[in-house]
Design a protein around this nucleic acid. Structure first.
Length: 178
DNA sequence: CGGCTTTGACCAGCGC
DNA sequence: GCGCTGGTCAAAGCCG
């Protein structure tokens, strides 16, 4: 890389903004691909190596300018075949035409009304099982929603989810009665 | 040509 | 108070 260029870049830089706490939803998907189609279009804006995992974490943002939903995608350090997708925020729009996948408008609309990641259950070619942990159905003081999805046995993944503590996410009011 | 990915650096929060 | 880590930005490059 050109150092001169890098120096020039640093001059114009001014980022590192606040960290707004938004509702997050974590999903565990057993898949060989990192980026699962969920009916929305995502733009990758960053990738970082995280401490607890040998695999880098990718950061995506919804391409819809009016939509502030973000998502993090990382692989489980214990089972590389498990992809942990964490959604932050809620979509303020329906899915786009699903240019790259096999989504029907009905399913896409359904996903848009619930949570984007739910649509992953319809990921073509994979049979996902959704497992909602007790803390979800019976939210108490901490509105935590933990969803584990896998197209294999949910047992190990459930264990993983709890062990890693990666799925402790806040559920927005509108999401609880689903 | 437009959109998306890559990549390095910056910033803020948190823990020690 | 300092250092570490995570999260975000923005320019350049690549691809369709």
């Amino acid at each position: 890389m050109l150092t001169a260029l890098a120096a020039n870049k640093s001059k114009v830089r001014k980022k590192g903004q606040k960290r707004i706490r938004q509702p997050r939803f974590a999903f565990m998907t057993k898949s060989e691909v990192d980026h699962l189609e969920d009916g929305y279009r995502w733009r990758k804006y960053g990738q970082k190596a995280v401490k607890n995992s040998p695999f880098p974490r990718s950061y995506y943002r919804c391409t819809n300018s009016k939509c502030t939903v973000k998502k993090r995608v990382e692989r489980s350090s214990e089972d590389p075949t498990i992809v942990i997708t964490t959604y932050e925020g809620q979509h303020c729009h329906h899915t786009v035409g699903f240019p790259r996948g096999g989504f029907s408008s009905h399913e896409a609309g359904f996903a848009g009304q619930l949570t984007p990641a739910i649509s992953q259950f319809y990921y073509p070619g994979a049979h996902f099982q959704r497992e909602i942990l007790p803390s979800i159905t019976q939210p108490q003081h901490v509105p935590v929603r933990e969803v584990v999805q896998s197209h294999s046995l949910p047992g190990p993944t459930t264990q993983l989810a709890t062990d890693n503590g990666l799925l402790g996410d806040i559920v927005p009011p509108g999401m609880r009665n689903t």
